[in-house]
Design a protein around this nucleic acid. Structure first.
Length: 942
RNA sequence: GCGGAUGUGGCGUAAUUGGUAGCCGCGCCAGACUUAGGAUCUGGUUCCGUAAGGAGUAUGGGUUCGAGUCCCUUCAUCCGCACCA
């Protein structure tokens, strides 16, 4: 019987669906395992072969765990809100829900063909009101919470109100936007409006005026990770800084926990590093400097308190609020000009001109608290308002940025740290600063002779003694801006009374997205939701018109999968207690600073509320690499150049192309990209090429000869990103149609290690297709005779290899092991049920359709999916002898088969007396014999 | 600039703990079958050399009986961060 994959795959996909084979429920008799793919955004382009890579890997793992006796949760759904559908709506007027639905259906159709074991009964979509009810619900919880630094968790805001009304801010240690001090009496005397405004300083979801990344083209603000080089990641439009009233999430309250939590996670070091970097914890000191001749002071943050005697100037950010007070009349004009210029510079300019030094002197001086030196206060845009206090003490000798600034404006440089083992030198001769935290303090009074580390601690001690500074930890992490001026997102369950936001009652959730007449901002620049009719509460209060950003819906989706149809709760306690968190998360590394940090925050907050039982959402994560395209290139002749090179006139009307290996081709031709579908084995189908594009219909070709003397046109190739514009896209549907889903699944895994990026080679898929045909052939006439020792050995070698390799996410080597095994069994002409039955089970995670078919052909009526993975038994693979490689001076010369129980001297004897050894022992004496049982024999001669 | 990853045949890769470098597959070469082959099967395929043999895992060095693997140097490619005080 032929291997008819088309028929087989259709049959079993229907069987699985009709019999709900992949449906899972909480089952306390089995251990749970949760395997999750990162939430896809269903784009209009559909899937190319790179997308299913991670899905296939997680599918294999899920199926394997199931065979190993686990109750496996393996769901899929859609991150359905997003900009592309909305952009399309703006252009065409099509409701984004319609576009999204269409794209989802296409995704689903493509995924179904690949035979994934998702429990589709658990599908969620972020744009579904049943789902976003809980996104809104979580937002309200955040709005109604504050973060207690003492107990290190979120607490109800009502509790804070209690505290404030009893003690004011006395002894309060909570996360806030800026420190506030007031008494209980003061609090109690506030109007409701004032109280509400004060609470905004503490809520975990709060409204504030902030500088945002405003993208005029998209009409919305963007998160930092949605901006690159001053352009929007989606669309590439310019982004400017602008102050706007926005919702923010106080993720900074969780900075330390987000940092510490990384230690408990089984993620790659590189992703953890990216997150550590993003959180950017730095320990240092805050120091207050008095301003000379004025009764004011200002605060700086430094990690190098030890260098305080090396401070020769101060720098404030152009947005610093004390600039006015500090500017002398003589300097006022210049300062104003500079500040205006700096504020108006776009983010893009600022980034591209990082190296350019600019700044202005305020006219004021700060006073060094230890020696009274007057230190000029400057303003420069190399100091950022958003970090620390927006002011620094500049130590040009030991900070490269300060050094550049000092050199540019001719400011003094004082060395205060000597390099290890070196004497201090004249900074005037330096070409760069010495930034390393190594060395010994000099020119620094009581710090002299201390190492940098000691000096930092000592200085902080002194500062605290004087009451002008203290040790302080800073984080680079910023609160997450949570408002988008967009239509296609979750509405905020917030209404405004006297301009103050109030939370809607939970009973009004979900607050459904209203329909509007156009998907653009209003004429007055308000978000699209301002177009909605009756966008007010029952009492007539206006409802918030911003919507939530993309990461709102994707931050807690893995929790909803545990109990996706629950109408009364986000998810039940029972479901959460059982499924806990994700055991294996597979997806791209590009979400390192977005989704993966927001989800962790979201989860920690729900953990604080006591509704999520685990502090971290994703225990183990694997980041699959990209599949690159293999583009084909045809060389187009530059006729003038060719005439010059060959010395002959080129008579040819249409475009002329030259085969890759023609003589001097590189001298007179340039490559153009060719559709990979008209190139086979790097040979161009010239007729198809002419028909491909109108401008090529008269194309002519200079051929080369193949080995049989035929004219062929050979293309060159190139590895690059897979994209439509490069004509190198491989569509999984086409491959499934040609080879079947099982072949595609195997090939995607066979390509190489999951984490690595690798090019897609269309040719190579033939190999896995041949393998499946060979595999199929083994099963044509099953014999019930007992298996031989050799056959059992082959089987058990494979069992061990597959188990070990799947556990360490090495799927490519398992496919290879299967090929070896099938080659061996084919050579043995093995057709024993005792071998082939377990093999069918073992291949089912990789090639479920063929496995199911063969399983049923062997007379079973139940699904192969529900079987038990065969047990490895070491007794089947024991050997009595070992084929030793025999080396002389580390170079292998021959093999020698020896019993495993041989002693060292017997081995030595056997080797020296082996006929092959003679030649290598002539004229030399044996110095040493290295014998490692079951490994190697090495004879050292000389 | 900082941080991370990677570097092995013509190509994708394998070698899990320092122990036979190149498994498996693609491609290529030769042969068989065939009216035919972008089908199937068999054999070969790191490089140099007829061979014996020699060289060989980006580069140069080191540790070791033995290094793709460990340490140091340099180079290349990719990814992330980037005035974060």
């Amino acid at each position: 019987m032929e291997y008819n994959f088309e028929e087989i795959e259709k049959k079993w996909q229907e069987y699985w669906r009709d019999n709900k084979i992949y449906h899972v429920e909480v089952d306390h008799d089995k251990p749970k395992f949760y395997v999750l793919d990162m939430f896809p955004y269903p784009s209009g382009a559909g899937l190319h072969v790179g997308h299913p890579l991670g899905y296939i890997a997680s599918d294999i793992y899920a199926r394997y765990k199931r065979l190993k006796g686990f109750n496996v949760l393996h769901p899929m759904g859609y991150d359905a809100y997003g900009l592309p559908a909305e952009q399309y709506a703006i252009q065409t007027g099509t409701h984004p829900a319609i576009t999204t639905e269409k794209n989802i259906n296409r995704y689903r159709e493509q995924m179904d063909k690949i035979g994934f074991c998702y429990d589709w009964d658990r599908e969620v979509r972020t744009s579904d009101p049943h789902y976003y009810k809980w996104t809104q619900w979580t937002f309200l919880q955040l709005f109604n919470s504050y973060y207690c630094n003492k107990c290190k968790k979120a607490q109800p805001i009502s509790q804070l109100v209690d505290i404030l009304s009893k003690n004011g801010t006395e002894g309060l240690d909570v996360a806030c936007t800026k420190p506030m001090t007031f008494t209980a009496a003061h609090w109690n005397a506030m109007s409701e409006r004032e109280q509400q405004e004060t609470l905004m300083n503490y809520r975990l979801a709060y409204l504030a005026d902030t500088m945002v990344n405003w993208c005029p083209e998209l009409g919305t603000v963007l998160a930092n990770d949605e901006v690159q080089d001053g352009l929007s990641v989606r669309g590439g439009y310019p982004v400017v800084r602008k102050s706007m009233r926005q919702w923010l999430l106080r993720i900074t309250a969780y900075a330390e926990r987000l940092l510490q939590g990384l230690e408990t996670l089984d993620w790659t070091e590189s992703i953890k590093d990216v997150q550590r970097n993003w959180i950017g914890k730095s320990m240092g000191a805050s120091v207050f400097f008095k301003v000379a001749d004025k009764d004011i002071d200002f605060e700086v943050f430094t990690t190098r308190a030890d260098t305080l005697f090396g401070v020769t100037f101060m720098v404030l950010a152009p947005e610093h609020e004390m600039i006015d007070q500090l500017t002398t009349d003589a300097q006022r004009k210049e300062v104003q000009e500079y500040v205006t210029w700096a504020k108006n510079r776009s983010e893009r300019e600022r980034m591209s001109e990082v190296k350019k030094v600019s700044g202005v002197f305020t006219g004021s001086y700060a006073v060094n608290p230890f020696n009274g030196t007057r230190i000029p206060i400057w303003i420069s845009d190399y100091v950022l308002m958003g970090y620390g206090t927006g002011a620094i003490m500049a130590v040009p000798a030991h900070d490269s940025r300060d050094f550049a600034f000092a050199r540019h404006f001719n400011l003094p440089i004082i060395q205060v740290v000597a390099k290890p083992g070196e004497e201090p030198s004249d900074p005037a001769t330096w070409t760069e600063s010495f930034d390393a935290k190594e060395g010994v303090l000099v020119n620094s009074e009581f710090l002299n002779g201390l190492t940098v580390k000691q000096a930092i601690l000592r200085m902080i001690e002194e500062l605290e003694k004087l009451g002008i500074g203290k040790g302080k930890t800073n984080y680079r992490l910023r609160d997450a801006i949570f408002s988008r001026q967009r239509y296609w997102g979750e509405p905020f369950p917030i209404y405004y009374k006297d301009g103050m936001p109030y939370a809607m009652d939970i009973k009004h959730l979900p607050l459904e997205l209203p329909s509007i007449d156009a998907y653009k901002p209003t004429e007055t620049g308000e978000p699209p939701l301002a177009r909605a009719k009756n966008w007010v509460t029952e009492e007539g209060y206006p409802i918030e018109t911003n919507t939530m950003p993309g990461f709102a819906g994707s931050s807690g989706y893995y929790l909803r999968y545990m109990d996706p149809h629950n109408e009364n709760e986000y998810f039940s306690k029972e479901a959460n207690d059982y499924w806990q968190n994700v055991d294996l998360y597979i997806g791209g590394a590009e979400h390192a600073t977005g989704h993966l940090i927001y989800s962790r925050f979201w989860n920690k907050f729900l953990f604080d509320l006591g509704i999520a039982c685990k502090d971290e959402p994703f225990q183990k994560m694997v980041n699959q690499g990209m599949i690159q395209g293999r583009s084909s290139l045809a060389y187009r002749v530059n006729k003038e150049k060719m005439a010059k090179v060959t010395g002959q006139k080129v008579n040819c009307e249409g475009p002329l192309f030259v085969s890759k290996n023609c003589k001097d081709r590189e001298l007179f031709s340039d490559p153009i990209l060719v559709d990979i579908n008209i190139v086979h084995n790097d040979i161009l189908d010239t007729e198809a090429f002419k028909a491909w594009r109108d401008d090529l219909k008269d194309a002519q070709f200079i051929y080369e000869k193949d080995k049989d003397g035929n004219d062929v046109f050979v293309c060159d190739w190139l590895v690059e990103k897979m994209s439509k514009s490069k004509f190198n896209v491989q569509n999984p549907d086409d491959l499934v149609a040609k080879y079947g889903a099982d072949t595609l699944r195997l090939y995607e895994m066979f390509l190489g290690p999951l984490e690595q990026s690798k090019p897609w080679d269309t040719q190579g898929i033939e190999g896995t297709f041949r393998f499946l045909k060979k595999f199929w052939k083994l099963y044509q006439e099953i014999s019930d005779e007992p298996a031989t020792k050799e056959e059992l050995k082959v089987l058990h070698k494979l069992i061990k290899k597959e188990e070990e390799d799947i556990e360490r996410i090495s799927f490519n080597t398992v496919v290879s092991a299967f090929m070896i095994c099938v080659n061996e069994l084919t050579d043995m002409k093995c057709n024993k049920r005792a071998i082939l039955e377990p093999m069918a089970i073992m291949i089912s995670p990789y090639a479920p359709h063929i496995a199911e078919e063969l399983w049923h052909q062997m007379g079973h009526n139940d699904s192969v999916v529900n079987q038990k993975f065969p047990e490895f038994d070491a007794k089947n693979v024991v050997e009595n002898t070992f084929l030793y490689p025999v080396s002389f001076n580390g170079k292998k010369r021959f093999d020698l088969e020896l019993p495993l129980d041989m002693k060292q001297d017997e081995v030595q004897n056997a080797v020296v007396n082996a006929p092959e050894a003679k030649k290598w022992l002539e004229g030399v004496s044996i110095r040493k014999v290295i014998f490692i049982p079951k490994k190697i024999i090495n004879i050292v001669v000389g």
